[in-house]
Amino acid sequence: MESQEWNKLEEFKKCNKEFLSNPIIKSFLSNQENYQLFLDTIVHPTVENRNKLDRMFKAFYFHIRFISFISTSLYFNAVHFDKKQRQHSSRYLLTIDSTVQNEEGITFIELIQDPESEIVPDKLSISDDIADYIGDPVLYEAVQELSVKQREVLTLAYIGGLTDTEIAKLLNKSQQSVSKMHKKALRKIQDHFKKKGKDKYESY
């Protein structure tokens, strides 16, 4: 019986060399589970086995075809979209991006800014008090309670993004004393939160 089964398999393999060397069939059968099902079907070619193998294969083949189909269509649609978008923006230029008449290469956007002006928008929004940057009412109260020097250190550290050493140089102090002030200020804020923050935030 054993050898008969083996013969059946060998015969199938011999008769269907071309079919079995098909890449998709090959990769389907490289899966252990699928190969077992394939062996069962060759040895016992019942309708049930054949259909089961067919179903497994369809799902397998579908998986590959579907994923590559969706992936390539996503890619080409994205390329197409970008092409259309570029075409659109080159045909319907914003006034600000179009070139000034009679002057080659100069766009309107370049004429908006006055480089000689003394008012720079970036500087307008900069404040040297940390309290101006705070939106949270409890934190604002806490910062109001700090001394002027403590606030100065916090401003330089968090708004200016300086390190304690850099702040020390700027204020002509030792790094140790700046870092002490910094820590003390943070502790004070923390204490304030512990006192006041609790009842305010517990309702959330």
């Binding site: 067919d54 083949y61 075809r65």
Partner: peptide, 9 residues
């Protein structure tokens, strides 16, 4: 439309 195992054979 996916071809089955036997269809490919």
């Amino acid at each position: 439309a996916i071809p089955g195992f036997w269809e490919i054979k």
